[in-house]
Computed example of a mutant assay.
Amino acid sequence: MQISEVKNKDQEKAFLDVARALYKNDPEWVCPLDSDIDAVFDPSKNTFYQHGEATRWILKNDQGSVIGRIAAFINEKKANYGDKRIGGIGFFECIDDSAAANLMFDTAVEWLKERKVTTVDGPINFGENDQYWGLLVEGFTQPSYGMAYNHPYYQKMFEDYGFYVKMEQITNEFNLEKGLSPRFVKIAEYVIKRRPNLTTKPFDPSKIDQFAEDFMDIYNSAWAEFENFTPIKKDYVIETFRKIKPIVDPGVIQFAYVNDEPAAFVMCLPDVNQIFKKFNGKLNLWNKLRFLYLKKTNFITRVRVVVMGSKPKFQNMGLESVLTYRAFQHTINNTNVKDIELSWVGDFNDKMLAIHKGLGAEPSKKHITYRLELN
């Protein structure tokens, strides 16, 4: 076997194509857009390169066929935490061969060691954790847009190498045709009634600058106490909003304000993977036209709840329930969506898991973020 760092166009193409080869007989897999994966490793498109670095490798067998891939990252803004220096690996794909997996793990770990890393998390993304994050271990059904999907045997490869569970990420789902839980509706309407100083607004794409400011304000306050947190910048939020603008339904992104102060938000996105499954990773002009057509025909029947957040001083007020209620009201009244995916929530987040339970959602998937200590 031969492992090579990706340094030219042919290797970049091989890095993408190995996934297509490994999943060609898997009816559930959805090929991520090539442009999305390429953007992760493009310093001109990924702002994380401003304070970090990443690289990737492909693995070939003795006959010259690509049989695996892996990437490694270090984000200097999040690397140093306590007595640890943390790096990451991700975008792992491999044939069912432990020697091949171990060679790729060894290569990525050695690269991280050269950068004084003592702790490795994976599989993760060189970006925020709402995409390509965690190893799927339960619920091997069609993934929604941005959610990681992999072969079941990867779990044994990670654990045999020495990775242990850092956290579990739980995804629940429910069907809107069954209606919202009466208890959940009662709670949301009660909060709305007893808080006259509370207002809600759907996202307005024509006012990206203002909503980006509000999102950043809430997000940075809500996550400030989490391990290794780095505040997001407004430019990053604006770029994210611009990226999702072609696919977003403004009614399922809701903001709450208390006395006109940004207090909480919920962001949901249509599951465009239902359309992208037809594209095999290629977003050329023809597929862009197909996307616009299918989007208008109510082809999408699933929405993914990507993230919720509330400033600490407004927590325990039920704002998340109100915003979720507003978003789902819009979905029921204005779309053809039937299924809601609530993804993914860390096992430490009891409050959010309680909201899932209150909605009547049922478990559908589980991802694991692993950790490896380098001695």
Rank of each mutant, 00 (worst) to 15 (best):
L319M: 05
D347K: 11
V258R: 06
A263W: 05
P270G: 04
V248A: 06
A263V: 03
Q315F: 00
K234G: 09
N284K: 05
D260E: 11
D339E: 09
V306G: 07
E341A: 01
A354S: 10
G251F: 03
F328A: 00
L269A: 03
F279S: 12
N284C: 03
I232D: 09
V237W: 01
S321Q: 13
V252W: 11
N333P: 08
P312Y: 05
V272L: 07
L292P: 07
V258T: 10
G281C: 05
K313C: 12
M267Y: 06
P231G: 02
N336K: 15
T324F: 12
K278C: 15
T301K: 00
V237D: 00
P250L: 01
D350V: 09
K351L: 04
L292K: 11
F265Q: 11
F276I: 02
K296F: 04
T230I: 07
N284I: 06
E227M: 07
I253K: 11
K234M: 11
S321Y: 13
Q315T: 06
T240G: 07
E320Q: 13
F299N: 12
F265G: 11
K282N: 14
R304Q: 01
K282V: 12
V252S: 08
D249L: 13
V266R: 02
F265T: 11
L285F: 15
K243R: 04
K295M: 09
E341I: 01
K351E: 02
P270L: 01
G318R: 01
T324M: 12
N298T: 15
I244W: 00
E239I: 10
Y236P: 13
V252H: 10
D347V: 13
A354K: 09
Q315K: 04
F348E: 12
A263P: 02
T301A: 06
I340C: 04
I232C: 13
K288V: 05
K277T: 14
S310A: 15
A264F: 05
N349M: 05
A263S: 04
I244S: 03
N259T: 12
I300H: 01
E341W: 04
E261C: 14
L323R: 09
E341G: 00
K277C: 14
D271F: 05
F299V: 13
F265R: 09
N333L: 09
I244T: 05
D271G: 00
K277F: 07
I247D: 10
P246A: 07
S321V: 13
M317C: 06
F328Y: 07
V337C: 09
D339L: 07
N259W: 10
N259C: 08
K277Y: 08
N334T: 13
K245N: 08
V345W: 05
S321P: 08
P246R: 03
K243M: 08
S343N: 09
A264E: 05
L323Q: 06
T230G: 05
K233W: 14
M267H: 04
F348W: 14
R302Y: 06
R302I: 06
